[in-house]
């Protein structure tokens, strides 16, 4: 064999050992990736997940932003402990720019844009939803602790993109 392939004894030995370890490595890699995949999917399947959804589409990119719910920027009570919040991104502010929600309630954010793409990020949470003109996206989140959170724009939207910041004030449970 050594003569056929022109390998030195060291090379041949290294080659044989390499092939053995290679199979072992590939097996290990596949097991690791399968476990990672199962791990990452587990959270979604078990409802710990944060999934962005779509509420509606419109041909006119500004149509959703003109709807009454978005115009008023209200926090609407939709159940015993559930609220809907309507937010529009515009260059370069969020409307409304101060939102009060209660601690521990399930909040559904309805988010759209009146001009270009914006990124609806609530700092310190996994909430992250692209605001698209003409599309109303949704994301559900429950704030476990009272305090101040900030909505930052994380999709580039022009000259004052960095200044597009709004506040969410999570009131302690039990306050009216």
């Amino acid at each position: 064999m050594d003569n056929n392939t022109g390998m030195s004894p060291f090379e041949a030995a290294f080659h044989a050992s390499a092939e053995r370890h290679e199979r072992f490595w590939i097996f290990g890699v596949l097991v690791m990736l399968v476990l990672l995949t199962i791990g990452t999917m587990f959270y979604v399947v078990h409802d710990y997940g944060l999934v962005t959804g779509t509420h509606s589409y419109a041909t006119d990119p500004q149509a959703p932003a003109r709807e009454a719910a978005f115009q008023d920027g209200k926090v609407v009570r939709t159940g015993p402990n559930a609220y809907a919040v309507y937010v529009v991104g515009r260059a370069w502010h969020w409307s409304p720019d101060v939102i009060h929600v209660p601690e521990g309630a399930e909040i559904t954010f309805y988010v759209t844009s009146a001009d270009v793409l914006h990124g609806f990020e609530i700092q310190g949470t996994p909430v992250n939803l692209t605001a698209v003109p003409g599309v109303v996206g949704t994301v559900r989140y429950t704030f476990r602790h009272a305090g101040l959170f900030r909505i930052l724009c994380n999709e580039y939207c022009g000259m004052f993109h960095h200044a597009m910041v709004a506040r969410i004030i999570v009131d302690p449970a039990g306050t009216p």
Binding site: H21, E22, W25, I26, V29, L30, L33, L36, T37, T40, M41, V44, V51, T52, G53, T54, H55, Y57, G119, N128, L129, T130, V132, V135, V136, G137, T138
Partner: peptide
């Protein structure tokens, strides 16, 4: 993070994306 496409596809994309790590891990070896 975009609205507009189904959660099933997001799951499939996760599996496909993890698969693309395989050739890079083989390269490492």
């Amino acid at each position: 993070s975009d609205p507009g496409f189904s959660s099933i596809w997001r799951g499939i994309l996760v599996v496909l994306t993890m698969s693309v790590a395989t050739p890079s891990l083989v390269t490492a070896f």
